[in-house]
Protein backbone atom coordinates (compact mmCIF):
# COMPACT_ATOMS: atom_id res chain seq x y z
CA UNK A 1 0.00 0.00 0.00
CA UNK A 2 1.29 3.43 -0.81
CA UNK A 3 1.57 5.85 2.06
CA UNK A 4 -0.14 9.15 1.73
CA UNK A 5 1.63 12.21 2.98
CA UNK A 6 -0.87 14.95 3.53
CA UNK A 7 0.05 18.28 4.95
CA UNK A 8 -1.14 18.17 8.55
CA UNK A 9 -1.73 21.88 8.83
CA UNK A 10 -4.37 21.92 6.11
CA UNK A 11 -6.24 18.63 6.49
CA UNK A 12 -5.72 17.68 10.10
CA UNK A 13 -4.01 14.55 11.34
CA UNK A 14 -7.23 12.87 12.42
CA UNK A 15 -8.70 12.72 8.93
CA UNK A 16 -5.54 11.24 7.58
CA UNK A 17 -5.43 8.51 10.22
CA UNK A 18 -9.06 7.61 9.72
CA UNK A 19 -8.57 7.43 6.00
CA UNK A 20 -5.65 5.05 6.44
CA UNK A 21 -7.63 2.89 8.91
CA UNK A 22 -10.57 2.56 6.54
CA UNK A 23 -8.24 1.64 3.71
CA UNK A 24 -6.52 -1.01 5.85
CA UNK A 25 -9.84 -2.55 6.85
CA UNK A 26 -11.06 -2.68 3.27
CA UNK A 27 -7.88 -4.44 2.24
CA UNK A 28 -8.17 -6.98 5.05
CA UNK A 29 -11.75 -7.82 4.18
CA UNK A 30 -10.78 -8.15 0.52
CA UNK A 31 -7.97 -10.52 1.42
CA UNK A 32 -10.24 -12.71 3.58
CA UNK A 33 -12.80 -13.04 0.77
CA UNK A 34 -10.10 -13.78 -1.76
CA UNK A 35 -8.47 -16.49 0.31
CA UNK A 36 -11.80 -18.05 1.19
CA UNK A 37 -12.74 -18.42 -2.48
CA UNK A 38 -9.30 -19.80 -3.36
CA UNK A 39 -9.38 -22.26 -0.48
CA UNK A 40 -12.85 -23.43 -1.43
CA UNK A 41 -11.93 -23.97 -5.10
CA UNK A 42 -8.73 -25.74 -4.07
CA UNK A 43 -10.60 -28.13 -1.79
CA UNK A 44 -13.22 -28.89 -4.44
CA UNK A 45 -10.48 -29.80 -6.85
CA UNK A 46 -8.55 -31.87 -4.34
CA UNK A 47 -11.59 -33.74 -3.07
CA UNK A 48 -11.42 -36.60 -5.61
CA UNK A 49 -7.78 -37.12 -4.71
CA UNK A 50 -8.58 -37.21 -0.99
CA UNK A 51 -11.46 -39.52 -1.70
CA UNK A 52 -9.25 -41.91 -3.62
CA UNK A 53 -6.65 -41.91 -0.89
CA UNK A 54 -9.15 -42.48 1.92
CA UNK A 55 -11.07 -45.10 -0.03
CA UNK A 56 -7.91 -47.14 -0.40
CA UNK A 57 -7.95 -47.64 3.38
CA UNK A 58 -11.60 -48.71 3.44
CA UNK A 59 -12.88 -52.25 3.00
CA UNK A 60 -14.54 -52.77 -0.33
CA UNK A 61 -18.16 -52.66 0.90
CA UNK A 62 -17.72 -49.30 2.61
CA UNK A 63 -16.40 -47.39 -0.41
CA UNK A 64 -19.70 -46.69 -2.10
CA UNK A 65 -21.88 -46.67 1.01
CA UNK A 66 -20.49 -43.69 2.90
CA UNK A 67 -19.56 -40.13 1.98
CA UNK A 68 -17.14 -39.74 4.86
CA UNK A 69 -13.49 -39.33 4.04
CA UNK A 70 -12.51 -41.06 7.29
CA UNK A 71 -12.78 -44.90 7.07
CA UNK A 72 -15.08 -46.57 9.64
CA UNK A 73 -13.14 -49.77 9.43
CA UNK A 74 -9.50 -49.05 8.81
CA UNK A 75 -7.91 -51.70 6.60
CA UNK A 76 -4.63 -52.16 4.73
CA UNK A 77 -5.97 -55.04 2.66
CA UNK A 78 -6.27 -52.83 -0.41
CA UNK A 79 -2.55 -52.11 -0.38
CA UNK A 80 -1.46 -55.64 0.48
CA UNK A 81 -3.64 -57.43 -2.05
CA UNK A 82 -3.22 -54.72 -4.64
CA UNK A 83 0.54 -54.92 -4.43
CA UNK A 84 0.47 -58.70 -4.92
CA UNK A 85 -1.92 -58.36 -7.88
CA UNK A 86 -3.82 -61.24 -9.39
CA UNK A 87 -0.86 -62.13 -11.60
CA UNK A 88 2.46 -63.80 -10.89
CA UNK A 89 4.15 -60.38 -10.64
CA UNK A 90 3.94 -57.83 -7.85
CA UNK A 91 2.98 -54.24 -8.52
CA UNK A 92 6.66 -53.30 -8.12
CA UNK A 93 7.37 -55.06 -11.39
CA UNK A 94 4.84 -52.85 -13.17
CA UNK A 95 6.38 -49.80 -11.58
CA UNK A 96 9.78 -50.74 -12.94
CA UNK A 97 8.27 -51.48 -16.36
CA UNK A 98 6.88 -47.98 -16.46
CA UNK A 99 10.27 -46.45 -15.83
CA UNK A 100 11.91 -48.67 -18.43
CA UNK A 101 10.22 -46.66 -21.14
CA UNK A 102 9.49 -43.36 -19.38
CA UNK A 103 13.13 -42.59 -18.58
CA UNK A 104 14.47 -43.07 -22.14
CA UNK A 105 11.42 -41.24 -23.44
CA UNK A 106 12.11 -38.19 -21.31
CA UNK A 107 15.82 -38.15 -22.11
CA UNK A 108 15.31 -38.55 -25.84
CA UNK A 109 12.59 -35.91 -25.90
CA UNK A 110 14.77 -33.37 -24.16
CA UNK A 111 17.81 -33.96 -26.35
CA UNK A 112 16.01 -34.00 -29.67
CA UNK A 113 13.64 -31.13 -28.90
CA UNK A 114 16.44 -28.86 -27.71
CA UNK A 115 18.51 -29.49 -30.83
CA UNK A 116 15.59 -28.90 -33.19
CA UNK A 117 14.40 -25.81 -31.32
CA UNK A 118 17.93 -24.38 -31.34
CA UNK A 119 18.04 -24.87 -35.09
CA UNK A 120 14.72 -23.15 -35.61
CA UNK A 121 15.45 -20.27 -33.27
CA UNK A 122 19.02 -19.47 -34.24
CA UNK A 123 19.83 -20.63 -37.77
CA UNK A 124 18.77 -19.58 -41.21
CA UNK A 125 17.55 -22.76 -42.81
CA UNK A 126 15.95 -22.88 -46.27
CA UNK A 127 12.13 -22.73 -46.14
CA UNK A 128 12.24 -22.14 -42.41
CA UNK A 129 8.71 -20.68 -42.32
CA UNK A 130 7.28 -23.68 -44.10
CA UNK A 131 8.95 -26.11 -41.69
CA UNK A 132 7.79 -24.11 -38.74
CA UNK A 133 4.18 -24.12 -39.93
CA UNK A 134 4.45 -27.86 -40.49
CA UNK A 135 5.74 -28.26 -36.96
CA UNK A 136 2.84 -26.29 -35.52
CA UNK A 137 0.41 -28.27 -37.66
CA UNK A 138 1.63 -31.54 -36.12
CA UNK A 139 0.73 -30.17 -32.71
CA UNK A 140 -2.85 -29.78 -33.86
CA UNK A 141 -3.01 -33.28 -35.30
CA UNK A 142 -4.76 -35.72 -32.91
CA UNK A 143 -2.41 -38.57 -31.97
CA UNK A 144 -5.06 -41.20 -32.58
CA UNK A 145 -4.98 -40.38 -36.29
CA UNK A 146 -1.43 -41.66 -36.48
CA UNK A 147 -2.01 -44.82 -34.48
CA UNK A 148 -2.83 -47.23 -37.28
CA UNK A 149 -0.05 -46.28 -39.72
CA UNK A 150 2.41 -46.15 -36.86
CA UNK A 151 1.30 -49.55 -35.60
CA UNK A 152 1.79 -51.03 -39.06
CA UNK A 153 5.19 -49.43 -39.33
CA UNK A 154 6.40 -50.80 -36.02
CA UNK A 155 4.96 -54.20 -36.88
CA UNK A 156 7.07 -54.23 -40.05
CA UNK A 157 10.09 -53.33 -37.97
CA UNK A 158 9.34 -56.15 -35.59
CA UNK A 159 9.14 -53.93 -32.57
CA UNK A 160 5.71 -54.93 -31.26
CA UNK A 161 5.48 -55.99 -27.64
CA UNK A 162 8.60 -53.99 -26.80
CA UNK A 163 9.04 -50.49 -25.40
CA UNK A 164 10.75 -49.23 -28.54
CA UNK A 165 7.59 -47.91 -30.24
CA UNK A 166 6.89 -45.90 -27.10
CA UNK A 167 10.16 -44.00 -26.94
CA UNK A 168 11.95 -44.37 -30.26
CA UNK A 169 9.88 -41.67 -32.06
CA UNK A 170 10.95 -39.21 -29.37
CA UNK A 171 14.51 -39.32 -30.68
CA UNK A 172 13.28 -37.40 -33.71
CA UNK A 173 11.61 -34.49 -31.90
CA UNK A 174 8.18 -35.74 -32.88
CA UNK A 175 6.41 -33.89 -30.11
CA UNK A 176 5.95 -30.52 -31.75
CA UNK A 177 4.55 -28.98 -28.61
CA UNK A 178 7.86 -29.26 -26.77
CA UNK A 179 9.85 -27.99 -29.73
CA UNK A 180 7.45 -25.07 -30.06
CA UNK A 181 7.71 -24.28 -26.35
CA UNK A 182 11.51 -24.30 -26.45
CA UNK A 183 11.60 -22.16 -29.60
CA UNK A 184 9.42 -19.55 -27.93
CA UNK A 185 11.64 -19.58 -24.87
CA UNK A 186 14.79 -19.25 -26.99
CA UNK A 187 13.33 -16.36 -28.93
CA UNK A 188 12.93 -14.52 -25.67
CA UNK A 189 16.59 -14.94 -24.73
CA UNK A 190 18.98 -12.18 -25.86
CA UNK A 191 21.55 -13.38 -28.38
CA UNK A 192 24.40 -11.29 -26.96
CA UNK A 193 25.71 -14.10 -24.80
CA UNK A 194 25.87 -16.39 -27.79
CA UNK A 195 27.64 -13.75 -29.84
CA UNK A 196 30.13 -13.22 -27.04
CA UNK A 197 30.71 -16.96 -26.92
CA UNK A 198 31.17 -17.08 -30.68
CA UNK A 199 33.90 -14.47 -30.36
CA UNK A 200 35.33 -16.46 -27.45
CA UNK A 201 35.68 -19.35 -29.88
CA UNK A 202 32.61 -21.57 -29.57
CA UNK A 203 31.37 -23.59 -32.53
CA UNK A 204 27.65 -24.28 -32.88
CA UNK A 205 27.62 -27.34 -30.67
CA UNK A 206 29.78 -25.79 -27.99
CA UNK A 207 27.47 -22.80 -28.09
CA UNK A 208 24.51 -25.09 -27.52
CA UNK A 209 26.17 -27.01 -24.73
CA UNK A 210 27.99 -24.27 -22.82
CA UNK A 211 25.66 -21.32 -23.29
CA UNK A 212 22.21 -22.17 -24.61
CA UNK A 213 21.46 -25.26 -22.53
CA UNK A 214 22.30 -23.61 -19.18
CA UNK A 215 20.11 -20.66 -20.08
CA UNK A 216 17.33 -22.97 -21.25
CA UNK A 217 17.40 -24.96 -18.03
CA UNK A 218 13.99 -23.85 -16.72
CA UNK A 219 12.33 -24.66 -20.05
CA UNK A 220 14.13 -27.98 -20.31
CA UNK A 221 12.96 -28.95 -16.85
CA UNK A 222 9.38 -28.09 -17.84
CA UNK A 223 9.66 -30.24 -20.92
CA UNK A 224 11.06 -33.15 -18.93
CA UNK A 225 8.36 -32.79 -16.31
CA UNK A 226 5.49 -32.62 -18.77
CA UNK A 227 6.83 -35.58 -20.69
CA UNK A 228 7.34 -37.55 -17.47
CA UNK A 229 3.81 -36.98 -16.22
CA UNK A 230 2.14 -37.54 -19.55
CA UNK A 231 4.13 -40.72 -20.17
CA UNK A 232 3.42 -42.20 -16.76
CA UNK A 233 -0.26 -41.52 -17.32
CA UNK A 234 -0.24 -42.72 -20.91
CA UNK A 235 -2.69 -45.56 -21.39
CA UNK A 236 -3.28 -45.74 -25.13
CA UNK A 237 0.34 -46.24 -26.18
CA UNK A 238 1.13 -49.22 -23.96
CA UNK A 239 -2.33 -50.68 -24.60
CA UNK A 240 -1.63 -50.87 -28.30
CA UNK A 241 2.01 -51.94 -28.37
CA UNK A 242 2.47 -54.04 -25.21
CA UNK A 243 0.78 -57.40 -25.18
CA UNK A 244 2.56 -59.58 -22.60
CA UNK A 245 1.64 -59.05 -18.97
CA UNK A 246 5.26 -59.17 -17.79
CA UNK A 247 5.90 -55.93 -19.70
CA UNK A 248 2.79 -54.07 -18.50
CA UNK A 249 3.32 -50.59 -17.08
CA UNK A 250 1.22 -49.16 -14.24
CA UNK A 251 -1.54 -47.81 -16.44
CA UNK A 252 -2.26 -51.23 -17.92
CA UNK A 253 -1.72 -53.03 -14.61
CA UNK A 254 -4.48 -51.00 -12.99
CA UNK A 255 -6.82 -52.02 -15.76
CA UNK A 256 -5.69 -55.60 -15.30
CA UNK A 257 -7.20 -55.83 -11.84
CA UNK A 258 -10.50 -54.52 -13.17
CA UNK A 259 -11.17 -57.31 -15.60
CA UNK A 260 -9.47 -60.39 -14.18
CA UNK A 261 -11.43 -60.49 -10.94
CA UNK A 262 -15.17 -61.01 -11.02
CA UNK A 263 -16.29 -58.44 -8.48
CA UNK A 264 -13.88 -55.53 -8.96
CA UNK A 265 -11.75 -54.92 -5.88
CA UNK A 266 -12.01 -51.15 -5.88
CA UNK A 267 -9.97 -50.68 -2.76
CA UNK A 268 -7.02 -52.47 -4.39
CA UNK A 269 -7.28 -50.37 -7.53
CA UNK A 270 -7.54 -47.15 -5.58
CA UNK A 271 -4.65 -48.14 -3.33
CA UNK A 272 -2.43 -48.83 -6.32
CA UNK A 273 -3.61 -45.68 -8.05
CA UNK A 274 -2.62 -43.76 -4.92
CA UNK A 275 0.84 -45.28 -5.11
CA UNK A 276 1.03 -44.71 -8.84
CA UNK A 277 0.67 -40.94 -8.57
CA UNK A 278 3.44 -40.65 -5.97
CA UNK A 279 6.34 -40.42 -8.50
CA UNK A 280 4.60 -37.66 -10.45
CA UNK A 281 3.92 -35.67 -7.32
CA UNK A 282 7.46 -36.10 -5.99
CA UNK A 283 9.03 -35.12 -9.31
CA UNK A 284 6.73 -32.13 -9.58
CA UNK A 285 7.55 -30.90 -6.09
CA UNK A 286 11.27 -31.19 -6.71
CA UNK A 287 11.13 -29.31 -10.00
CA UNK A 288 8.35 -26.93 -9.06
CA UNK A 289 10.30 -23.69 -9.01
CA UNK A 290 11.98 -24.26 -12.35
CA UNK A 291 8.74 -25.53 -13.83
CA UNK A 292 6.82 -22.37 -13.06
CA UNK A 293 9.68 -20.21 -14.37
CA UNK A 294 9.84 -22.32 -17.51
CA UNK A 295 6.23 -22.02 -18.53
CA UNK A 296 5.74 -18.42 -17.52
CA UNK A 297 8.86 -16.84 -18.97
CA UNK A 298 8.60 -18.43 -22.40
CA UNK A 299 8.24 -15.65 -24.93
CA UNK A 300 9.03 -12.95 -22.42
CA UNK A 301 12.34 -11.17 -22.70
CA UNK A 302 14.76 -12.86 -20.28
Amino acid sequence: MTKLFIDKSTTGVVDNDRFLRVQMRKQKIGAVIRYFILLFCGLVMLYPLFWMFSASFKPNHEIFSSLSLWPNEFSLDGFINGWNTGTEYTFGRFFLNTFYYVVPKVILTVISSVIVAYGFARFDIPFKKFWFVTLVATILLPTSVLLIPQYLMFREMGMLDSYMPLYLPMAFATQGFFVFMLIQFLRGLPTDMEEAAMIDGCNSFQLLWYIVVPMLKPAIISVALFQFMWSVNDFLGPLIYISSVEKYPIALALKLSIDVTEGTQWNEILAMASIAIVPSIVVFLIAQNYFVEGITSGGVKG
Binding site: P190, D192, M193, E195, A196, A197, Y210, I211, P214, M215, K217
Partner: peptide, 9 residues
Protein backbone atom coordinates in the same frame (compact mmCIF):
# COMPACT_ATOMS: atom_id res chain seq x y z
CA UNK B 1 28.89 -5.54 -25.45
CA UNK B 2 26.48 -2.86 -24.35
CA UNK B 3 24.63 -5.13 -21.93
CA UNK B 4 27.82 -6.90 -20.83
CA UNK B 5 26.71 -10.30 -22.21
CA UNK B 6 28.30 -12.17 -19.31
CA UNK B 7 27.46 -15.85 -19.14
CA UNK B 8 24.87 -15.87 -16.36
CA UNK B 9 25.60 -19.38 -15.11
Amino acid sequence: FQNYALYPH
